[in-house]
Design a protein around this nucleic acid. Sequence first.
DNA 1: AATGTCAATTGACAGTGTCAAGTATAGTAC
DNA 2: GTACTATACTTGACACTGTCAATTGACATT
Lengths: 204, 204
Amino acid sequence: MNKPLTGDEIVEKRANLLDCAMAILEKDGIQALTLRRLAEEAGVSRQTPYLYFKDKAALVDAMRIAGLNRLTGVAQAAVAGVEQQDLIEQLRVVGETYVRFGLENPAVYKLVFTPIRPDEPPTPEHKKAIEANQNVAAARMKSAWKEGLLALPPDRLNNVFWAALHGLISLRNEGLIADGEIFEQIRSDMDYVLACGFIERQEK
Amino acid sequence: MNKPLTGDEIVEKRANLLDCAMAILEKDGIQALTLRRLAEEAGVSRQTPYLYFKDKAALVDAMRIAGLNRLTGVAQAAVAGVEQQDLIEQLRVVGETYVRFGLENPAVYKLVFTPIRPDEPPTPEHKKAIEANQNVAAARMKSAWKEGLLALPPDRLNNVFWAALHGLISLRNEGLIADGEIFEQIRSDMDYVLACGFIERQEK
DNA sequence: AATGTCAATTGACAGTGTCAAGTATAGTAC
DNA sequence: GTACTATACTTGACACTGTCAATTGACATT
């Protein structure tokens, strides 16, 4: 098994390692994600991951991007189902997807939104993933703005909207706000922010 | 130097270790906080921290509480200076204190709001620190509610207010929202949330 | 002077990330 | 077919981590 690898083989093995790493993360948390365990679980030798990732930080970066793209994917899929409804409803669906994803995959969510390297700027690939992710909501904010539905500029509302969701998910996942009917509560908090941002709320 | 320690000596040495640990955290980040380095920096031997903290997690827990209390302290001090002004202004000051603290002490802020042990519930001491911290804003929300100033129940507005601030600070610190005049921007985002929550906004 | 107590230190170990050297196999040249 | 080389992969080794266990050493009591 030592002939030169084709490009496809490389991306496939890399993807396999990535999947394994994500599985470990979801199963046992970030502190359980060790290079040795990853190697073992993937059925390769200790040092093999270094053939596909420069170091552990690079692996984690890749995981971050993968998780982010996953979130983007489910958000897009969810909103595709309500494309014909009004914009505020679409945004509500996007927000709900975020919340659901964040609460159901706390480890992945946390990883995605907490880069470890505070100094270095995000890679271009990471930046692109972030943009794509943001765009799901931002594009609809812009549309709403163009139609004169917003009480404040779309990027501002997007900021507040996103931050409120992110804050609720984070605080919830860290156990800092009590649970109870957390899902309905967050949904209505979200509705509240949206309702404030939209000039007038359509009744359904 | 081996006679039984008095209670005061214990808390003093413990506090000294805590201070050292906080200093390391602020200076070089959480990944630089190592028990050996802490011991060295504190001028004690490798194992000494174990006399005052069960293990590293216990040390970090103590740091979390210390950081939280520090934030509570500055918030209380800040709001004490505007106690005679109207409630919305007081809340604005509280929020601003949070934002300033979060942006100026990113490592401490992150530590405070991201418990490491996902399973175990917060200790009573931690819980008390959280409550005291929340109460700075929550008490004023309640007052505003009693005076009929709020458009929604105080705990709900508090949730959204807090979450929005926390989200903005976090996303900003993780480099996920662009900077620029971040400070003014967050302030006005905060104003926006408050303005939505208050039935009518007082002009100054 | 002997003993016991207890703060504090040092020794040791398993586990981590990672560099460097080694191994083995597939392809190529003759 | 044999020798060579490139390359996928493995193993050895090291510094560093958290932590348990045994040891040391100074004081108080007898």
